[in-house]
């Protein structure tokens, strides 16, 4: 069985990636439904709670994530043109930006924990139901999103090592394209999370 050489079908793996992205959108979709229902039920409390969030950290992270999407897209273009060195630099830049995003997230969450704003805390339990739900959703949705950032990071490390050992070339770069698609998905979800939690106050 081991010597069977299966043919490579880039088109198939791209379709597969798109289908996977659909499933991811639906996964987050469940949480977005919960968010919209509870926001509709508790408009005032959601408004109050959103003011607790730090707009500047959110904004910085938005910029970081958008930039990282751009660098990864450029890394893909570079590898198509055969510029492996440039592609490595751009992929590394994306990785660094993703890590900076997570560090920001860490401090942001840390500040919330310091203020006793975390699910199940005694302080939060005394607030109104809408605020409890807001912070529950906030931690669940940004947490799930951060998990996706970590998965994206792992993917990009794999891309980097393939670029390093030259198994990824100008005509064999499907992994980079798919990682790019995945990364844009992570980006797009953030684009919805950011206004829903930080901007609508």
């Amino acid at each position: 069985m081991t010597d069977i050489h299966l043919h490579r079908d880039d088109e198939a793996s791209k379709i597969g990636m798109w289908l996977f992205i659909f499933t991811e959108l639906l996964l987050f979709g469940g949480l977005f439904i919960a968010y919209s229902i509870y926001r509709f039920k508790n408009p005032v409390a959601f408004h109050m709670a959103a003011e607790e969030l730090d707009l500047s950290v959110g904004l910085i992270n938005t910029i970081i994530l958008l930039t990282s999407s751009a660098t990864l897209a450029m890394a893909y273009t570079a590898v198509q043109l055969g510029k492996i060195g440039t592609s490595k630099i751009l992929t590394s830049a994306t990785i660094i930006l993703a890590i900076v995003f997570l560090i920001n997230k860490y401090f942001e969450w840390g500040a919330k924990f310091e203020h006793n704003l975390y699910p199940g805390s005694d302080y939060l339990m005394e607030l109104s139901q809408g605020e409890i739900l807001f912070f529950g959703l906030y931690f669940a949705m940004t947490g799930l999103h951060a998990l996706h950032i970590i998965i994206g990071l792992i993917l990009m490390f794999v891309v980097l090592s393939r670029l390093q050992n030259k198994t990824m070339t100008s005509d064999n770069n499907q992994l980079l394209e798919n990682s790019g698609l995945y990364w844009h998905l992570v980006d797009i979800i953030w684009i919805f999370l950011f206004p829903l939690f930080y901007l609508i106050t």
Binding site: K41, M125, Q129, I132, A140
Partner: peptide, 9 residues
Amino acid sequence: IGFFDPALG
């Protein structure tokens, strides 16, 4: 978290 818990909204 309270998604489905009426006591938490």
